[in-house]
Design a protein around this nucleic acid. Structure first.
Length: 707
DNA sequence: TTAGGGTTAG
């Protein structure tokens, strides 16, 4: 290792500040891989964390200006009291302002329309018309079989689709001026517009209602809010919710849970809980839909305590979950990494008489697969077949992915054949990708190639993930000519290379030599020429560290977050396989600085640990060298040391991590480092303080110049 | 979609 590249665990740790652009000019003399706090990856550090105002800000104006106006007269004393929450309700005769009304909106009852058949037929005729021909539509309107009275018009309006027809008919009804156009007409039209994700039209209609003095009720507001939500206009959803309060209308529980979902989707957990608790304090008994909103939110934030809170609330309020709520909670428990809880909840569900549907089973199969609970997964599968529980394409594909996770090739093959013979669930690109993954990760090259050829024959579109699986498999098998062919054919068939595919090519390159390496490089050139230019830069001796840093930062900025660490790992491997050891150390340092290896080194009073589980073989070797050098200088300076040192490679249970422990072991021997594989804990290498100190002493004072 | 709210795929 170059003498200029001495790392130190303890000295010269000027940790760069992510907001300080000066950190781009890194020190070149002393690197400190093991003393950095991770810095946000380059393109994330500049972005504001949250552009949305908090709900406490949102609710402040509501609490002080709107909620207090529920009594018609403005009462300054009340406004003042509202600012002091502890002494709000001095006057017990005044009703408490609430956040929601416990009364649902009452619907007007339908009376039977004797002309229903004629009107439905008329609606069908309109539906069959070409929307683009306004004159034809207008002509059909003249054929309306009965006068467009309020009831008749409403019946037709309810039977029309898509939204263009509904809007056309609604506008026509308005021009007829046979009756005042009431709220329900707007509501029906808005619902259709929501289905077509036409928020702009919805908002225009809402403003028209305001202008014409047509009342906006809870149905109107909830439709506006959910339409805004579906169109990703969360700002508008909040705006209309606030507007509702301002007009003095209280949301009912439907509107309330709709807005809870809006805040949840904005990631505003505290605000959702604040609204939830305020609702509860107002005597609201949340229903399964409200709990589904909370459950989903806590699942998304992987918050197990939150999910437990939801379960507890449901229990204490005696709310019986329905199918959707069960599905949501199962999904949430899966995301929170609680397969045992999910299994228990599923058993409760079946025991309580709720029959699982495709979504239930998809959630559970995914959970068991990810947890590698093979026995549970297979038992569930048997129950699915025995009970003839419903299957759909997504469930089939999830089962295939589970087989991939558990290495169940024969079972996957059976399932895949079942799918080919089925009416509803013919294999699609996801199914083929799962099978390519199964054959590819099992090293079954011929079967994987056969599947690749089959895809185009059956007319299924190849996707980038399937292509990546196959290329990985061919690379491992050193079938480079096949790999190039597959890459070229995939591009011809419209596959657009993504960062994972590039990472896969880069990884193949790292263990290829000579002509093979050039062949893979030419594929990578077509997919990501900047990456190839960077590899060339690494190989040039004259390239300075500053240039490497600048270019690497540029590459990371352009790369999807999940592909950044694999890129860094592969680039380090490439350097090591080409005897560019110093470059490998520079890249590991940069990877640490840019937060690609969080927790690489952890310290407690008793133990210092090097965690290389997420590193490639070359990166782990590089990290070990860095660490040994750092420890050496600490020993030489006679500073305080813990009792135990350990390195964690992982035991290799994951299909791709096998081999890291053994290659690490070889490198430990090569460096004659004092670590031994732990007998108690698989995947751990350990050394005591004494081992380390005597090792350093035996090496003599010039170690750092010799490694 | 039949006047309003919640759930499935690397």
């Amino acid at each position: 290792m170059a003498a200029t590249f001495s790392t130190a665990l303890d000295v010269h740790c000027s940790i760069p500040n992510s907001s300080d652009k000066k950190y781009l000019k890194l020190p070149t003399k002393r690197f400190a891989t093991f003393c950095k706090s991770p810095i946000s990856p380059p393109n994330e550090s500049d972005e504001p964390q949250n552009q949305n105002p908090s709900l406490s800000d949102q609710l402040k104006p509501l609490a002080t200006t709107i909620l207090s106006n529920t009594s018609t007269k403005q009462d300054p004393s009340q406004t003042q009291l509202l600012n002091k929450p502890k002494s709000i309700w001095v006057n017990p005769t005044r009703p408490k302002p609430s956040v929601l009304t416990l009364q649902r909106h009452k619907r007007s009852s339908y009376s039977h329309n004797p002309q229903i058949r004629d009107l439905r037929q008329f609606a069908r005729k309109l539906n069959d018309c070409d929307t683009s021909e306004a004159s034809i539509l207008a002509a059909v309107l003249e054929e309306i079989p009965h006068p467009p009275t309020k009831d008749n018009s409403l019946l037709v309006l309810n039977s029309l689709r898509p939204w263009q027809k509904v809007l056309f008919f609604f506008n026509w009804v308005k021009t007829q001026k046979l009756f005042p156009v009431e709220t329900i007409f707007y509501n029906v039209t808005m619902k259709s517009l929501r289905f077509g994700r036409q928020f702009q039209h919805v908002e225009e209609l809402a403003l028209e209602m305001v202008e014409n003095g047509v009342e906006l009720d809870n149905i109107t507001y909830s439709t506006i809010i959910t339409c805004a939500k579906r169109c990703n206009r969360f700002d508008k959803a909040v705006e209309w919710f606030e507007r509702m309060y301002k007009t003095g209308l209280m949301p009912d529980e439907v509107t309330y849970s709709a807005i809870l979902d809006v805040y949840s989707k904005l990631g505003k957990v505290e605000e959702v809980m604040s609204l939830y608790e305020r609702g509860r304090a107002n005597g609201w008994k949340p229903d399964p839909i409200a709990f589904a909103v909370l459950g989903k939110m806590f699942g998304e934030s992987r918050d197990y305590d939150g999910i437990r809170y939801v379960l507890q609330e449901m229990k204490s309020l005696a709310v019986k979950p329905n199918l959707v709520l069960y599905n949501t909670l199962l999904e949430a428990l899966g995301k929170a990494g609680k397969p045992g809880m999910a299994r228990g909840l599923f058993e409760n569900m079946v025991a309580s008489g709720v029959t699982p549907d495709e979504k239930t089973l998809t959630a559970l199969v995914k959970i068991f697969g990810k947890a590698r609970w093979g026995r549970d997964a297979l038992q569930l599968w048997e129950r699915m077949k025995a009970n003839r529980w419903p299957m759909d394409l997504i469930l089939y594909n999830t089962l295939l992915n589970m087989c991939a996770d558990l290495g169940l090739e024969a079972e996957a093959k059976t399932l895949f054949e079942d799918m080919k013979g089925s009416e509803q669930s013919r294999p699609d690109s996801w199914s083929y990708t799962a099978m390519l993954n199964i054959y590819g990760s099992g090293g079954n090259v011929e079967k994987a190639i056969g599947l690749f050829e089959e895809i185009s024959k059956v007319g299924v579109k190849l996707n980038v993930m399937g292509c990546t699986c196959l290329i990985q498999c061919l690379g491992r098998a050193k079938r480079i000519d096949n790999l190039v062919k597959v890459f070229e054919v995939s591009i011809q068939r419209g596959v657009e290379p993504d960062d994972r595919l590039c990472g896969c090519l880069l990884s193949v390159m790292s263990y290829c030599e000579g002509e093979d390496s050039n062949k893979v490089l030419s594929c990578l050139q077509a997919a990501n020429s900047e990456l190839v230019a960077f590899v060339n830069l690494l190989e040039e001796e004259k390239t300075s560290f500053e240039t490497i840093n600048k270019e690497f930062r540029g590459i990371l900025t352009e790369t999807a977050v999940e592909a950044r660490r694999p890129y860094c790992n592969c680039l380090i491997d490439i350097c090591r396989n080409r005897n560019l050891t110093e470059r490998a150390h520079e890249l590991l340092y940069l990877g640490t600085v840019y937060g690609l290896y969080p927790g690489l080194h952890t310290k407690t009073a008793d133990e210092w640990r090097l965690n290389v589980r997420s590193l490639s073989v070359g990166a782990a070797q590089t990290a070990l060298e860095e660490w040994m050098e750092t420890l050496t200088s600490i020993v030489q300076r006679q500073e305080a040391l813990p009792y135990l040192f350990s390195a964690n490679t992982g035991a290799g249970t994951h299909k791709f991590s096998q081999g890291l422990a053994s290659s690490f072991s070889v490198h430990v021997e090569k460096l004659a480092a004092p670590f031994a594989q732990s007998e108690e804990k698989a995947g751990f290498f350990v050394a005591t303080r004494e081992d380390l100190v005597s090792w350093v002493e035996s090496k003599g004072p010039s170690l750092s110049a010799t490694t």
